[in-house]
């Protein structure tokens, strides 16, 4: 029978509550500006995102957080007329530098989108897509990585018996986890998530959030979210954007308990505008 004494005995040797240790910056941003044609949508963003942690980008619609996220893996390259100024580095190497190939970069920096976008292929082929275009043909290796990725995305048990069926047969939440598995399959270092749960119901959302929490052991994650509570729940650090500027960037608990800027305070308390 549990008593106070036995409970203490079993717990006393457990590791102490982990303190947030500072890890070196994985993504280093200095004075980053971004323009759509003549209009400037990001103004002098500077921030360091630590390795193997979750950084949340929050702010009202149109504040530039998504644009910023898409600058990290150069998804904005496909937009005509867009250009930038300033520096984004991953592991000290400039993302926009001459030596960096956007296609190569995107293999290292995976992305999950707001609306789940499985390809019109089987579940297996969806996950294997990145590997196949990377040149992997070995069936055994493909099988292995597909299983591992689906397991990591907490989807394996739900789909292992129907890998060859269309990805569209999955529910919305499952499709989103499939997209996460697909991104994980190419073994990126960084995972960018653009409102990955905004189209999902609360249960599916909770699953994605748990997944994010699990994944941060192995990946550096940057997540854009409209949902402040979600940012609070999943992230270690939070950046608050407003009108294309970075207003405040700090540990998540600081942002939500004791923000230093009036604007941040107004936003997180819902007193905004």
């Amino acid at each position: 029978m549990t008593t106070f004494a036995t409970e203490v005995a079993t717990r006393v040797n457990a590791k102490p509550a982990d303190m947030n240790t500072t890890t070196p910056a994985k993504i280093h941003v200095r004075d980053f500006d971004f323009f759509y044609g003549a209009s400037k949508v990001l103004h002098g963003i500077s921030m360091d995102m630590p390795d193997k942690q979750v950084t949340a980008l929050i702010g009202p619609s149109g504040c530039g957080k998504s644009t910023f996220l898409r600058s990290i893996n150069r998804m904005n390259d496909i937009i005509p007329d867009a250009h930038h100024d300033g520096l984004i580095e991953i592991d000290g190497k400039s993302v926009y530098g001459g030596g960096t190939d956007a296609v190569e970069l995107r293999r290292r920096v995976g992305m999950v989108f707001q609306k789940s976008n499985p390809f019109p292929k089987s579940i297996f082929d969806n996950v294997a897509y990145g590997l196949k275009i990377g040149g992997l043909r070995n069936r055994r290796q493909l099988n292995e990585i597909v299983e591992k990725s689906l397991t990591r995305a907490a989807l394996w048990d739900e789909v292992k018996d129907r890998l060859q069926t269309s990805a569209f047969a999955l529910s919305g939440g499952q499709q989103q986890r499939l997209c996460i598995a697909r991104a994980l399959a190419v073994d990126p270092e960084i995972l960018l998530m653009d409102e990955p749960a905004s189209a999902l119901d609360p249960i599916a959302t909770a699953k994605i959030e748990e997944l994010i929490y699990e994944l941060k052991d192995n990946f550096t994650i940057v997540i854009v979210t409209h949902n402040m509570q979600q940012a609070a729940r999943v992230s270690d650090r939070t950046a608050f954007f407003m009108l294309g500027k970075l207003v405040e960037y700090s540990e998540t608990k600081t942002i939500f308990m004791n923000p230093q800027q009036k604007m941040t305070e107004d936003y997180v308390t819902g007193r905004f505008g």
């Binding site: 893996n73 998804m75 496909i78 296609v103 190569e104 995107r106 293999r107 995976g110 992305m111 989108f113 609306k115 976008n117 499985p118 390809f119 019109p120 292929k121 897509y129 990145g130 275009i133 990377g134 997209c179 697909r182 991104a183 190419v186």
Partner: peptide, 27 residues
């Protein structure tokens, strides 16, 4: 074909041509 499919392919490190012929045209 939804724009998301193209973005999904590009985000996995597909070139533009690859994205067209392996994802968009099949779709």
């Amino acid at each position: 074909v939804p724009a998301g499919l193209r973005e999904g392919a590009l985000a996995l490190g597909a070139t533009r041509g690859r994205a067209v012929f392996t994802v968009i045209v099949p779709a």
